[in-house]
Write a protein that binds this DNA or RNA. Sequence first.
DNA 1: GTCTATATGGTGATAGAC
DNA 2: GTCTATCACCATATAGAC
Lengths: 222, 222
Amino acid sequence: MSTAVRNDDSGLRAAPKGGSGLRKQSKADASRERVLEAAAKTFSERGYAGTTMRDIARAADLQAGSLYYHYPSKELLIEAVIDKGIHNITNAVVNTIATLPPSTSYADRVRAAIQAHLHALLTYSAFASASRHLLAQVPVEVRRKHVLRREAYEEFWLGLLQSSQAAGETRDGVDLRLARTFILGGLNSALDWYRPEGKSIEELADQFAMMVEGGILIDRPD
Amino acid sequence: MSTAVRNDDSGLRAAPKGGSGLRKQSKADASRERVLEAAAKTFSERGYAGTTMRDIARAADLQAGSLYYHYPSKELLIEAVIDKGIHNITNAVVNTIATLPPSTSYADRVRAAIQAHLHALLTYSAFASASRHLLAQVPVEVRRKHVLRREAYEEFWLGLLQSSQAAGETRDGVDLRLARTFILGGLNSALDWYRPEGKSIEELADQFAMMVEGGILIDRPD
DNA sequence: GTCTATATGGTGATAGAC
DNA sequence: GTCTATCACCATATAGAC
C-alpha cells in the first residue's frame, strides 16, 4: 500500500554570523531566507543570466545593494539555491528508505522512493527546478561540485534497482541504468506540468509506481 | 520487431531572399544555416540570456555585426531555433506513424513513435535541447506560440494511447495523460545524458519500449 | 541591515567602409 | 555578405550615509 512518509529536513541552515549560535531566527536569518526563496523562484523562472540582482531584490522586498549583505555574489547565491535543491530531494528519499522495515519488498521500496522524490520535488519546486535546469548555465566550479552530488543521488537509485534485481524482483532483460534514467526523467518532468489544483502528489506517485511496476501497455493481446 | 524508420524532413527552409527561388544553396543560405546551427549549440549550452551575439558569431566564424544580415535580432534567432527543434520531432514522429501499415498493433505503433522521437531528439539535440529548456526564458510572444505547438505534439501522443486503450491494449487503471507525460519525460531526459559512444539510439529505443510495455519490476513474486 | 549613489564593464543593435 | 567602430543601455558589485 501507500507507505506514507514525511522526511523533509530542509537542510543547510546557515550558521548565524556573529554570536553564540543560540537564537532561533535573528532578523538577518529571516532576511537571508527570504532572499534565498526569492532567488530560487526568480532563477527558476528566468534562468541564471536572465535573472538580475534587481529582480531578486524586488521579489524579496529589498533594494539590490542590500542583497550583498546576505550573499557576497550572484554566483554564490545560485550555488546556495542549487545546493538546497539537490539536498532536499536526496535527503527526503534516502531518509525515507532508511526508515522502512527491513522486510519491505523492493517493489514497495521503489514505490516509497517515488513518493518521496515526487513530494520533495514538488514541495520545493523552485529549488528543484533551478537545480535541474540551470546547472549547465552556471560558472564551472559551481557546476562540477553539484554534478557529483547529483550523480551520487542517481547511484542511490541504481543501488535500489540492483538490490531489487538480486532479489529476483526486476524483469529480465531490463538495463538498470536506463531504467533509472527513465524513471527519474519521467518523475522530474512533473516540474514542467504539475499544478496543485489537479491530482494530489500521492495520487501521482501511485500512478507512476504502477507504471514502473507493470508498464503501460499490455504485453500482447493474442 | 524494429519497425525501422527515417522520416526526417528538417523542415522550414527559409525562402531565398531575392530571386526566382530556383537555386539550391546560395552563399547566403549556407551562412544562414551555419548561423542557425551555431545559435542552437550556443543557446542550448548557455541559455538564452547567457548567450551573447558575440558567442554565436564566434561559433559561426563571423563577426557579431554580420549576424544581423541573416537574422534581425537575437529574439528572432532563438525563435528560429526553437521552431526547428519542435518541428523536427513532431514531423519525424507523425510521418513515421502515418506510414505504418494499417494492421500495425498499437504496441508496435508506440514502439515506432518512441524510436522516431528518440532518433530526432538525439540527432538534432542542440535544437531539441533549446526547445525544451529555453522556452521559459524567452520573450512572451515567442513562448506562447511554441507552447501551443508543443501541446499539439503531446496531444498526438495522447491520441495514440487512447486508440491503444480503445483496442484493449493498455493496462486497466492507467491514467493516459500521466502515462504520456511519463513516457515523454523519460525519453527527453536522454538529452541530458546520452553519449554516442555508448548504446545506439535503436538499442535505447528498444529498451524504453520494453519498459513502457511491460514495466521494470515484476508485479509480485508471491 | 538597508538604503542611495556610482564605478566599471559588457550587451544588443546600427552605420558605413569594403 | 562581411567587416570595424561605436552608441546607448543595463548589469554586478562597492562605498558610505543612515
